[in-house]
Design a protein around this nucleic acid. Structure first.
Lengths: 240, 240
DNA sequence: TGTCCTAAAAATGTATACATCTTATGTTGA
DNA sequence: TCAACATAAGATGTATACATTTTTAGGACA
């Protein structure tokens, strides 16, 4: 019984009940408030959320289409089980999709706005990572920087479908890996350096190089994730 | 007003009205029965389909999640417009996704069933393409062969998300390109030969080679499509 | 004790009435 | 004539009653 759903003061985040209910159930799933495989009974959700079955059903359908729930006719919705291997594989897919986005961005070029956003993200990252240690706030701030960089490249690929699919890859429950992947400072610095090189390649219209750099960039996150999940230590290199 | 929706004898294809209505509306959209950008009014669909608004709304939501419709709160659903560039780009994405699937299949290996299906598909294709000319039935038969080959590789990648995303790439309206892409016999033969090589690479666990072959294999469809759309003729090479 | 059958309970599927929002229409005012 | 507003019509959003299916519970029988 997720506490997140019981707050009566919560303001609607979306124009319709269906959409705001979708957001709340999605948040609960991604936060791990439901057991994997658990059935989501419409009437219970109805009671928790204080709305009728109509918007609840609407939300469940939407979440099933997103891949967070599984649907069986006449048998309802249940939380989709994600194997660790599926979470890891999602990074393989992202590596392919984002490397394509980088190549297309290089081939098709950035506009002034996009260049400005990325350059700001690179500068902000440089400033953050100049510190000797990252606070929790710093990590959150770097997360925003990282998002801005990748999201802008998706936009610059001029390919709506790509961005949508990357988003699908990221919508995976068991957010444990999100925390796990908040890595060593060394790793973050290296990845930020990747960003610089990728941007260079895009600016120089070096499509193939941008693709390869981005592929390795995302794949390295997979590697870190696998290492973290298997409990092995981060290898030490020229640490200050 | 699509005729396809007016046949009262049509048998339900799915266990619930919602699902069968989803199938029928999807088919109508993919067949181009609705103008791109056209609003899909719930009550009209209700009349055409002979069901209440509940399953219609359910279907529209599902199709919006598939990317075939666009949804605006309080303003309903409309047929998503697909630019030609988006249809072409979908092949770029497919090339990345399917090449990943081929590599994973090579790395993870095929089971006996999968080997049998692919070998049957290759043999059937060999037999079909031995003819001097393909009838319409032959083309349909080869389409099934082609599907079996690709679908089995998706399965063998052991990565559910990959198959789902490829399916998203293929669900695109304006099926004109489907017809356009039913190419010259020469092209089909070459692509079938690709299938042989890709299978060889997978059997030999040559992941990188399988990936590269598949990437070019799918990309070549994009090239043919672009050529067909631009009205240029198919280049002639050593034609018998 | 275990299996099978039957009936009740509960869950999902569907239809429909009502609420809310959008859009169209037409009137008023300058 | 045109803009702005008011109203009505129509469309979507929501709640709820009813239908159908699934699940559960209990008992008969071997």
């Amino acid at each position: 019984m997720p506490d997140i759903l019981l707050d009566p003061d919560e303001q609607p985040t979306a124009p319709t009940r269906s959409l705001s209910v979708t957001d709340r159930i999605r948040a609960a799933i991604l936060a791990g408030e439901f057991e994997p495989g658990a059935r989501l009974h419409e009437v219970r959700l109805t009671e928790w959320l204080g709305v009728s079955r109509t918007p609840v059903r609407s939300a469940l359908q939407a979440l099933a289409a997103e891949g967070l729930l599984e649907y069986t006719p006449n048998r309802g919705f249940s939380v989709r089980r994600f194997l660790t291997s599926e979470i890891v594989d999602a990074y393989e897919i992202r590596a392919m999709l984002e490397s394509l986005a980088a190549r297309l961005a290089a081939e098709r070029g950035l506009n002034a706005d996009e260049r400005a956003i990325i350059e700001q993200a690179l500068a902000d990252g440089d400033a953050l990572l100049a510190k000797d240690e990252l606070s929790e706030d710093d990590r959150i701030a770097y997360g925003a920087v990282n998002f801005a960089f990748h999201d802008t490249i998706h936009t610059a690929s001029r390919c709506r479908m790509l961005g949508e699919m990357v988003r699908l890859c990221q919508r995976v429950p068991q957010s444990s890996h999100r925390n796990v992947v908040s890595f060593e400072l060394m790793d973050v610095r290296r990845r930020h350096d990747d960003h610089h090189r990728i941007y260079d390649a895009i600016l120089m219209s070096e499509g193939h190089r941008a693709e390869m750099l981005m592929r390795e960039h995302v794949a390295s996150v997979k590697t870190s994730l696998v290492r973290a999940l298997s409990g092995r230590p981060t290898p030490t290199r020229y640490r200050r």
